[in-house]
């Protein structure tokens, strides 16, 4: 088990280093930060430009610059400064991260709490009306673009019915609609996966045996079968997280949610590369970290996984 965990941690570190190198070189390629930092209105002479370049260390070789960046990042948590606002990126991150985490957690919670029981129910009551409705929801949830569902929700519940706020962060009420929209895709996937895994389990020998033994049907289903059907959904957690991060970019944009996703889009459209760098690295870190946790949990749950290779 220790070897398995160590290997997974090492893989995660390598992935993050690779990501940082890719992002850093991307930023490096997109333009000269010294030119961007020099305000346009001042007729900046070549000397000032050269001096700034020297100050920022842009004259040094690429790998040295990368090393310096990583050193400042790891020792001081320094992500550099926004080109536009001149604020330190880490302060902006600290403002934005809680909002995104809140939204992602709510989305994940909703998709689990609804998707898993609904999938199991679909399998148990196969071909019933409930199963058919579930199937339709899943098909729609996997096909409808999230940004569009978000906008339709804003029109219907926010503007027309005026039930819930649809703009910005705040209390629980602000969280409800964005979280539902964010959860829709993962929820659909979880329903489908839960259904098929439950169908497999219901068909297995031990369930048949439990039934033959005369066990009550509700105990067979919820105590024995459902428990096993949930295991494959765990690995799906990692995938779901990628989906949630993807979705949160779009959902944050529509609901004006002040999170990392919006910061990232602002960075890209305003060509504020240090911001893009900071947000991508932080999202990447969250993603890799959760995937690592899921992998390790899965290693505990299923010995076959950790003994492979």
């Amino acid at each position: 088990m220790t070897r398995y965990i160590l290997r997974k941690v090492a893989e995660a570190i390598v992935t993050l280093l690779g990501l940082s190198l890719v992002v850093f070189s991307a930023v490096h390629m997109t333009g000269d930060p010294a030119r961007l930092l020099l305000p346009v209105r001042i007729d900046a002479s070549e000397e000032v430009y050269e001096q700034l370049k020297e100050e920022l260390g842009l004259n040094r070789p690429f790998m040295v610059q990368y090393y310096t960046f990583m050193r400042d990042l790891l020792t001081k948590g320094d992500f550099g400064r926004s080109v536009r606002s001149q604020k330190e990126a880490r302060h902006l991150l600290v403002e934005r991260i809680p909002a995104t985490l809140q939204l992602a957690a709510a989305g994940l919670f909703l998709s689990f709490i609804i998707g898993v029981p609904a999938g199991i129910l679909s399998a148990v009551k196969r071909d019933s009306i409930a199963d058919k409705i579930g199937k339709a929801v899943a098909i729609f949830g996997l096909a409808a673009p999230q940004f569009w569902v978000a906008i339709m929700v804003v029109i219907l519940f926010g503007a027309y019915l005026q039930w819930l706020p649809v703009y910005g962060a705040g209390g629980i009420r602000n969280l409800i609609l964005p979280a539902i929209v964010l959860a829709l895709g993962p929820l659909a996937a979880m329903m489908r996966l839960g259904r098929s895994s439950m169908l497999d389990i219901l068909d297995s020998e031990f369930v048949k045996f439990a039934r033959v033994k005369g066990m009550r049907e509700s105990i067979v289903i919820w105590k024995h079968a459902a428990r096993n059907a949930v295991i494959p959904l765990m690995t799906f957690g990692g995938l779901t997280l990628a989906g949630l991060l993807n979705g949160s970019i779009v959902v944050e944009q529509v609901f004006a949610w002040p999170g990392l996703g919006r910061m990232m889009i602002e960075g890209v459209t305003q060509r504020d590369m240090p911001l893009v760098q900071a947000t991508v690295l932080v999202s990447g870190f969250f993603y890799v970290f959760t995937a690592l946790v899921v992998d390790i949990l899965y290693g505990f749950a299923d010995p076959r996984i950790r003994d492979a290779n």
Binding site: A26, G238, N246, I265, V268, V276, V280, Y287
Partner: peptide, 14 residues
């Protein structure tokens, strides 16, 4: 594994 929109944004940024 990486979120595809995030990936796309890096590319569009470049």
């Amino acid at each position: 594994g990486f979120p595809s929109i995030l990936l796309a944004m890096i590319i569009v940024a470049i």
